[in-house]
Computed example of a mutant assay.
Amino acid sequence: MADTVDELKALVTRHARGPRTETTICGVSLLQSRTTTEPTAGMTELTMCLVLQGEKDISCGVNALVYGEGHYFVATIEIPVVGRISRASRREPFLGIGFNFDQAALAELIAEMPESGDPDLMCGLGISPTQPELADAFLRLIRLLDRPDEIPVLAPMLKREILFRLLQGPQGAKLRQIAYAGSRQSNLRRALGWMRENYTEPFKVEDLARMAGMSVSVFHRQFKVATSLTPIQYQKSFRLHEARRLLLEKAGDAAGVAFAVGYESVSQFSREYARMFGAPPVRDVARLKTTQTSSYTDRRKAALVETSPATREGS
């Protein structure tokens, strides 16, 4: 498998244009970082990350996961996490591939596989070693970046093979949970979706449990298993993520944003924001904007170098 991984590293290095590069293959991104990063809070998507070099760690509630080369990470539920690149350097940058899950494609594929019952609800995050067959499928997919005319025909087939390999692997039960319309996780995600859409509103756990088709005690237990958080902690985390997004996208003051996301106390908002993101709102946003500007400048320099006459002559 070493030759497969080496070729994948070379392809990612050649095509990556920054920390995250969305490719012309829908749902596939390239990840690259020449430095370690500070812990950053974010929301997971229904996705996986195949690590080729370097190391990342991610935490949610009391759960902490560390994954590096030779492993892949999956997220099958939308939950707030704190993650960072913990091993990377200019000589050996962090390299990885992001792959978003298509629920419809998963459901269609599962329907063609041997019958499998709804597994017990489990944590929506997981890590497993990369099987040679999975790495090979990714290699054939990423090679298409050099043959863009072939992407419309071959990419869907290769993405389907990747889903098949994942379903056959140790994280397969997690993926089945997001594909079954009536699974325990599907029912729980219905309640989570309501919480995200109505994050400024107070809620009753009884109503959420009814939405998920569970008793209150079962809902509390299953919610904690899947997200590592209580419903109140989940709502608070989502409010703070939305506040950060608003502060970055709009020229609003912290007090106004605090009220906009459902807080009644500005001081409580500032305390909880600093606890999650490591700095008070104004300082955190200023730091983020500086980082974004620096990242854009680095990508611009790389693009200029790549398109310079000297570079073209030497290629």
Rank of each mutant, 00 (worst) to 15 (best):
S86Q: 10
G42K: 02
S29Y: 03
L144M: 01
V81R: 01
I127K: 08
V261M: 00
A75H: 04
R143V: 00
R90A: 14
G213M: 07
W194Y: 15
N100L: 14
D102N: 11
A173C: 13
P281H: 05
A286R: 13
I110V: 13
Y234G: 10
T130K: 03
F259W: 12
G278W: 00
L154V: 14
T40W: 03
E45C: 02
H241F: 13
V218N: 12
T307A: 09
K56V: 06
D120R: 15
F269R: 15
S128T: 13
A251T: 03
G193W: 13
Y273C: 15
R245A: 12
G314V: 13
L246R: 15
V81Y: 08
L166Y: 01
T227R: 01
G117D: 15
R176N: 07
V28S: 02
V218P: 02
G18P: 06
E161S: 06
P281C: 11
N187L: 15
G27C: 10
E112A: 09
G213L: 12
S116A: 14
P93C: 11
V153M: 10
R34K: 07
Y263Q: 03
G27Q: 06
L158C: 05
R140L: 03
T311K: 02
E242C: 14
A75P: 08
M157E: 02
L166H: 01
E45F: 02
T200L: 03
R245M: 09
A179Y: 00
V257H: 01
F269G: 14
D298C: 05
V5S: 06
A135I: 00
Q185M: 11
Y180K: 03
A16P: 00
A155S: 07
D253Y: 05
E306P: 09
